[in-house]
Write a protein that binds this DNA or RNA. Sequence first.
DNA 1: CCTGAGGCTTAAAGCGCTTTAACACTGTGT
DNA 2: ACACAGTGTTAAAGCGCTTTAAGCCTCAGG
Lengths: 334, 334
Amino acid sequence: MTGAVKRPRLEDVAADVGVSTASVSLVLRGVAGPSAGTRERVLEAAARLGYRADRAASLLARRRTHLLGVPVVLRDAYRSELAEELQVAADGRGYTVALSAVTPVHDEQRVMETLLDLRCEALLLIAPDLSPDALAEVGARVPTVVISRHVEPDGFDVVRAADDEGVATAVDHLVGLGHRDLVHVDGGDAPMAADRRTGFLAALHRHGLDGRILPGGHVEEAGARAARTLLDGPELPTAVIAANDRNAIGLLDVFIRAGVRVPQDVSVVGYDDRELARLAHIDLTTVNQEAAEQARRAVGAALERLDGERTDPVDIVLTPRLVVRGTTGPPPAR
Amino acid sequence: MTGAVKRPRLEDVAADVGVSTASVSLVLRGVAGPSAGTRERVLEAAARLGYRADRAASLLARRRTHLLGVPVVLRDAYRSELAEELQVAADGRGYTVALSAVTPVHDEQRVMETLLDLRCEALLLIAPDLSPDALAEVGARVPTVVISRHVEPDGFDVVRAADDEGVATAVDHLVGLGHRDLVHVDGGDAPMAADRRTGFLAALHRHGLDGRILPGGHVEEAGARAARTLLDGPELPTAVIAANDRNAIGLLDVFIRAGVRVPQDVSVVGYDDRELARLAHIDLTTVNQEAAEQARRAVGAALERLDGERTDPVDIVLTPRLVVRGTTGPPPAR
DNA sequence: CCTGAGGCTTAAAGCGCTTTAACACTGTGT
DNA sequence: ACACAGTGTTAAAGCGCTTTAAGCCTCAGG
């Protein structure tokens, strides 16, 4: 039953109160002008009639839409979480987030077009796979913020957490516990993998140590594979820093099935601090990327551009935070 | 750089070609009328100028928006996957999906309002938590389809997979393998849990058997807890059917850490067939809910209402499909 | 040669809201 | 009394597109 009760228009409210539509519009948007009396009567009538502004008409008339476009990869928990935080952050600043899913049949480009058709005023891209050139092109068209990806700002802003520092805190923690033989299972060709690799090596060098890097990937399967490789090797390292939490989960799973005790035999560190890592039976030491803060900064950066407060691109780099849980401990005595 | 190059308007294309905006509009929407010559010239000019219709204006003028609203719980992989499938299905029928996230600060009601403000013509609700009354209220306002939830259609349509049948296929499979002592770790007070419980018991009864039900929940933690309970009990069942895949993963994790072999000592079945279940080292036998098909049916149901082809509510029930993998096998010899 | 039909095209009236310039009024200072 | 600054309010002009009725041709038939 499509209760086809026509929704009330501004005009209906105006007629009810006995003022012009201009006054009603002014009151409803909280613009100064109308008297307290008018204000009150308009608000009462609007509430009584259940009036809700027609967004399409409103957008058409005013030049602003107050819509921020966010392409989202629903299969990726980290990106989904960030999208959620973006919506919260945008809401707090009076903006609405329009989400559109990147799927096998809707690539990033296509989703951005859809979002622009909806008249989003800015695009917030969460760890996009686009090339720097493609990003620059987008940035030239519409205010754009790239989130959680290390890329040179070029007509667009960047907000990210320092992956190298994040890995370094993990290294420091492990070395502090006495570990000397560390392995990093990397994220393959994922965008952030390079920084994590260099961060790993650089941190070890600072301690006068060297370390091994094992090719990995960003999903459980890759961690599992890496674990098997390690188990087949001559000697297990005393600690492993995984590319991310999913990778770490796969790693843990295979270790445990093989009878390797964590952290007694080997310590494991993840990355992302996903919900999964916090579960009692996983209890994974990991690195938190401050998603909420990244989201707030990203929305802030977009609004600065929209408000014309800034035109130069910025690169906002946050410091990740190590969360120590139960999968790390002193190395086994040799 | 907000390359503030004003986007071309219909009028610009019309001027370029030397015809009226009406003709251009007609051509661009593929409406019969304009001659082949006009058609061609308009299309050429539109492409050359990079014209894209302003959706807000277009929506305002025509009464339709071709927008379907989907509230999505980003933290829930099953719902996210369904949202993705909905977008694909809608796209195939010429509609666009507007997604909005349900977050701690945006409850389902609020998200629906946002979506309606964007002028979505229908709402597709994925396993909503709303009460039947609340759903009926929504359905009275706007064409609504409830997906993946067993609820009496009441002014809205329902598309779902039969949870009881799904569990029954799992039971049949296990009993066929020789199992006689089955346990179901349920989904607590999640909406689908009840059907899975009754399906479990009914299927066993058909085989002349009885079974135990353990209180659970829909996340890994609940499965882990249930596993500990079972390990502490007098005797392990030979097979466990979990509330869903996440629950099963938690269960498996604890079993494996305790040295229980799967499936040699105990068989485990999940529900949902999430990506995780397919991983080589998990290889979980589980029940697939045909998300893509549910999505197609849901979009179809919504469009039927929008096109006025149907006003009576429907309840479309699909049959889930058991996917046999490596966590199920014959029971241990006693 | 006139009429009517049929094919194209377009003028113009919205869609529901925002915004600006102009128009009352009041009261204040001179 | 008179100009002058507020204060409140509104008429009216869009925003960019769709849609309908009317107009203009051309051509076949009478």
